[in-house]
Design a binder for these strands. Structure first.
Length: 287
DNA sequence: TGTCGACCTGTGAA
DNA sequence: ATTCACAGGTCGA
């Protein structure tokens, strides 16, 4: 590992918000190394981050290094994040205001779409630690070793060569079929997944829904966390409860809730979603 | 269009 | 020890 360096001093960031960003279920490749540090990888670059006195420090692997610019981009530490927060309707929405106040600096990471799709194909009826665990088994067996205990995403072309039964042995359960079939779909269409990012949100979502194992929720997670579509608003069980309880949307169906989210939260609805999700999960509200 | 059970497996509470 | 519900869902009837 390289020596520690200062990445940025960042006053609108809390340890909780940062921790939740890295381990709260939008990504699955980070592990805590101490009370205030985390190690993980993105795009085959290995990085350790530390949060201290409102400052982020970083160091990187010597064989798979990242630059500070790449880390800042991955973490969405840019003015556009502050602008996005500013555009959310927290001034007139006390629920959202409370979430943002409780989790300063919570953000959407800029992950790669292929790896993000893979993880969320595994996500149904699994807890966050389990998604992380079974994902890691696949990385370990078919990916490249980047660092002690850190392996790379094997890629869809590689996954397409693996029989479903072999994936089942890695504890994927019925998700093995989703991964195997999706891998074959993607591998047989050159540049199909990457080209989705050039589309408009609605069209990109429509394309992803063609994949086996990808329903509305997984499609939105993939687009929000892996495609930088910040208007995507994944509705999972937590958000479902949040919208019914906090916004009195009992009896509304999914399409109606999505419409509400789009109207009320606007083009950064996905960021709002992350605040609502984490606040609900971490029990920020007294109920 | 809306509802319901099956689908794998692990974990934690009763 | 054994059961049972539930876990950031999707699919097909």
């Amino acid at each position: 590992m390289s020596p520690w360096k200062e990445l940025i001093e960042y006053k609108n960031l809390s340890k909780l918000g940062f921790h939740e960003t890295l381990t709260g279920g939008q990504c699955f490749g980070w592990n805590t190394t101490s009370d205030n540090s985390w190690i993980g990888s993105f795009s085959t670059k290995v990085v350790e981050l530390r949060f201290e006195n409102r400052t982020i420090f970083w160091r990187t692997s010597l064989t798979y290094p990242a630059t500070s610019e790449e880390i800042l981009e991955y973490l969405w530490v840019e003015k556009s994040y502050d602008d996005a927060i500013n555009e959310l309707p927290w001034r007139s929405d006390s629920v959202l205001a409370e979430c943002i106040e409780a989790l300063p600096g919570l953000r959407i990471l800029k992950q790669s779409i292929d790896e993000t799709l893979f993880y969320f194909l595994l996500s149904s009826a699994k807890s966050i630690p389990q998604i992380q665990a079974i994902g890691k088994l696949v990385f370990q067996k078919y990916g490249k070793k980047l660092f002690e205990n850190i392996y790379s995403f094997p890629g869809w072309d590689r996954l397409a060569q693996i029989p479903e039964r072999e994936l089942r042995m890695l504890k994927l359960g019925y998700r093995a079929k989703y991964v195997a079939q999706t891998a074959r779909f993607i591998a047989s269409r050159q540049n199909w997944l990457e080209s989705i990012m050039e589309l408009k949100y609605a069209d990109a979502k429509k394309q992803l829904l063609r994949l086996p194992g990808v329903g509305e929720k997984v499609a939105d997670c993939t687009l929000l966390f892996g495609g930088n579509f910040l208007e995507a608003f994944p509705i999972d069980t937590w958000i479902e409860k949040s919208m019914e309880k906090r916004y009195n949307l009992n009896g509304w169906n999914t399409a109606q809730k999505l419409h509400f989210a789009s109207m009320h939260f606007g083009k950064f609805a996905g960021l709002a979603q992350q605040f609502l999700f984490s606040a609900e999960r971490l029990k920020v509200f007294k109920d």
